[in-house]
């Protein structure tokens, strides 16, 4: 199946939202790494919910970029919210695509993880496993985001480079089929 192509009414800027789930914010840093091109990006898109604007709720958007995997209830809710509001949803980086580094906990029992961190770890003071309802509850495993909602595009990399993100956004907004030069998909 071919990934969807973006169609935008002429004269309208597409809206872009981004979120970090269970990741390290490295993919967002990589986006910032486009340097002065961010000024062009501001001309190209209207920013919606994203850590760059600090807007907390997502509106109707053309493009949603998701960094990080799904590790807890909040991640699920944010991800579903983005799927509901974004025409095209993109998994950005290793954690969103595969679960990445956070998924290394998948080989352990979630109970063992919590006990190690909150009860038995070195330097723990007042050991107790947090149970406040305000705290998002952990899933037993960390999942890639396509296992929770449908995803239109996957951008691998840890993180995908600034040029990769820039190329992707330009081609997507221009309504082109996405294609990268070899240098952008060569990882070693």
């Amino acid at each position: 199946m071919k990934p969807p192509v973006l169609t935008i009414e002429s004269g309208k800027k597409p809206r872009l939202a981004t979120a970090a789930l269970c990741g390290c914010f490295g993919c967002h840093m990589s986006l910032l790494d486009i340097d002065e091109r961010i000024l062009k990006l501001v001309d190209m898109v209207e920013f919606d919910r994203t850590p760059l604007t600090d807007i907390k709720t997502v509106g109707e958007c053309e493009i949603g970029l998701i960094e990080g995997g799904v590790a807890n209830t909040e991640n699920v809710e944010v991800l579903r919210d983005f799927r509901r509001h974004c025409k095209i949803l993109v998994a950005v980086g290793a954690c969103a695509v595969n679960g990445g580094v956070p998924a290394m906990r998948n080989q352990f029992d979630v109970q063992d993880c919590l006990e190690e961190v909150y009860l038995n770890g070195i330097g723990v003071v007042d050991p107790q496993i947090p149970d406040d309802p305000e705290i998002p509850l952990l899933l037993d495993k960390v999942h890639p985001i396509h296992e929770v909602v449908h995803i239109d595009y996957f951008l691998p990399g840890c993180p995908p480079s600034a040029d990769t993100l820039w190329t992707f956004l330009n081609e997507l907004i221009e309504g082109k089929e996405i294609s990268f030069p070899y240098s952008l998909i060569h990882y070693d």
Partner: peptide, 27 residues
């Protein structure tokens, strides 16, 4: 997938559950 954490934290508040939403994530 939340059941083990619910058990460990003895939580059963609404925030400790995720409702099934088949259609909302279908685009």
């Amino acid at each position: 997938a939340l059941a083990p954490s619910r058990k460990i934290t003895r939580r059963d508040d609404p925030g400790a559950h995720i409702a099934y939403e088949p259609e909302q994530s279908s685009k």
